[in-house]
Amino acid sequence: MINFSDDAILKGLKEKHADSIRYLYREYFPLTKSIVEKNSGSYEDAEDVFQDGIIVLYQKILSGPLTLNCSLKTFFFSICRNIWMQRLDRKWRLLYQDDLVSESIEDYDAIPIEINEEKLEKTRLYQLHFLSLPADCQKILKMFLSKASLKEISECMGFKDVHYAKTRKYLCKNMLRKKILKDPRYKMFLHYE
């Protein structure tokens, strides 16, 4: 079994290497699961938190050189715990049980990490629905979001004209919006006035 150093994990994650992500799962997921499950969460919650934790870590790596005053493991658990506690708080069901949480958790609290938990959850939800769209829809929307012109989209997708490309773009976008609006998890983000 290969062991990665903290630097190797960070470097691998920056490049989005599958090996680094697999290593994180193998080594870091069990404790993340334990943190979440001991604080009123489920296995699925732990998986979501873990995914968001990786995204936050990735964003931190991209935002500049990451200087750690602790091990990467401690830093990562601190991120995950922070996400989960904010999520619990937001959902008005904070059932924090100090006695059940690992004794080293206090170390994680000491690390200040700015996390927009709500945006993380939205990002995950939107991306999951986007990835569940038909492949051609994903491709059209990706091109559209990367500011490709309708002519480029039309040529790349082999559409007869730009009007059809435009219609398909709206149809795909609409399909994505409907999927998200129907998702019960989206209800907590609704802002009906």
Binding site: K16, A18, I21, R22, Y25, E47, Q51, I54, I55, Y58, Q59, L62, K122, T123, R124, Y126, Q127, L128, F130, L131, L141, K142, L145, S146, K173, L176, R177, I180
Partner: peptide, 23 residues
């Protein structure tokens, strides 16, 4: 509007895809 902003970040989308596949 949020979709436009979030999905424009292809980098994160690509990472998410890899995470999901490993999961």
């Amino acid at each position: 509007s949020e979709l436009n902003e979030i999905l424009a970040n292809m980098d994160i989308l690509e990472l998410r895809q890899k995470i999901l596949s490993i999961q």
